[in-house]
């Protein structure tokens, strides 16, 4: 079995008085692509925020590469190699594509040459960004914005890339293109935690999946098995919540 990269044990969390997560256990092995699926409001984004140290309270243990990262500020998390591509892309308006990508490299300490090299890597994966390097990022199309957001994440030289809602609002053909890009990124040794509402896409890309239901992990298993699990398929086909006793 390969090395555990990220391991959550009994993680609870929420906003102020509101508790959203109730003792979540989740793990990502080094080199894997893992997906986290679940219906609206299940707490997927909140879980990523707990990991990133972003505006939520959390309890429980979050370990990364063997180190306890629970309760650490966002800057430490990024420095440790966990990079979060947020829901809704959150590009910096008024800044060019290139400056957005460079913002991704903000916390790096390995020098300008390495950053320039990775900029070329991003342009290699997403040639459309190379064509629009000087353009205001807020004027990009939805798909291009997602490319820019993922590219910005890669610029941080992550060991684990967490992507929230890859496919949100994008045409199927674009989602496919982005999925191929993720596979390429994954092959370079970057582990990926993919949060998705589009269950089919998520399970096709990932090797392992977790299903989050009202703040708890309801089902976990190999993506191949989840794809034929009636609980998953029923939920995907439109049942309100997963009927787990």
């Amino acid at each position: 079995m390969s090395e555990r990269l990220l391991e959550l044990t009994g993680v609870s969390g929420g906003y102020g008085d509101i508790q959203v997560l109730w003792g979540v256990d989740l793990a990502v092995n080094a080199g894997d692509m893992v997906c986290l699926i679940g219906s609206n409001g299940a707490g997927k984004s909140t879980l990523l925020r707990c990991i990133s140290g972003l505006g939520v309270w959390s309890k429980g243990r979050i370990a990364f590469a063997g180190r306890d990262m629970s309760g650490r500020p966002a800057a430490d998390i990024v420095a440790a190699g966990i990079v979060h591509v947020p829901e809704g892309r959150r590009l910096f308006r008024g800044m060019s594509v290139r400056d957005n990508l460079l913002m991704g490299a903000y916390a790096r300490r390995d020098g300008a040459a390495a950053i320039r090299r990775d900029l070329e890597v991003v342009y290699g994966i997403f040639p459309r960004l190379a064509e629009r390097t000087g353009q205001d990022a807020s004027t990009l199309s939805g798909g291009e914005q997602q490319m820019c957001a993922i590219g910005r994440g890669i610029m941080a030289a992550p060991r684990l890339l967490m992507i929230d809602e890859l496919s949100l609002g994008l045409a199927p053909r674009l989602v496919e293109e982005l999925g191929e890009a993720l596979i390429k990124i994954n092959r370079t040794g970057v582990s990926i935690l993919l949060v998705e509402q589009d269950v089919i896409t998520a399970l096709e890309l990932a090797s392992y999946g977790f299903v989050l239901d009202r703040g708890r992990i309801a089902i976990a298993g190999a993506a191949r098995e989840l794809m034929v699990n009636p609980l998953v398929t029923d939920a995907y086909l439109g049942a309100t919540a997963l009927a787990v006793s």
């Binding site: 972003l54 959150r90 800044m95 400056d99 913002m103 903000y106």
Partner: peptide
């Protein structure tokens, strides 16, 4: 400058800037 970009980024979106590792 790098710091200048970070200032602009914080103004645009404080949370997104924090996700870039900006203190």
């Amino acid at each position: 400058t790098r710091i200048g970009r970070a200032i602009v980024a914080v103004r645009m979106d404080r949370e997104a800037a924090a996700l870039m590792g900006v203190n």
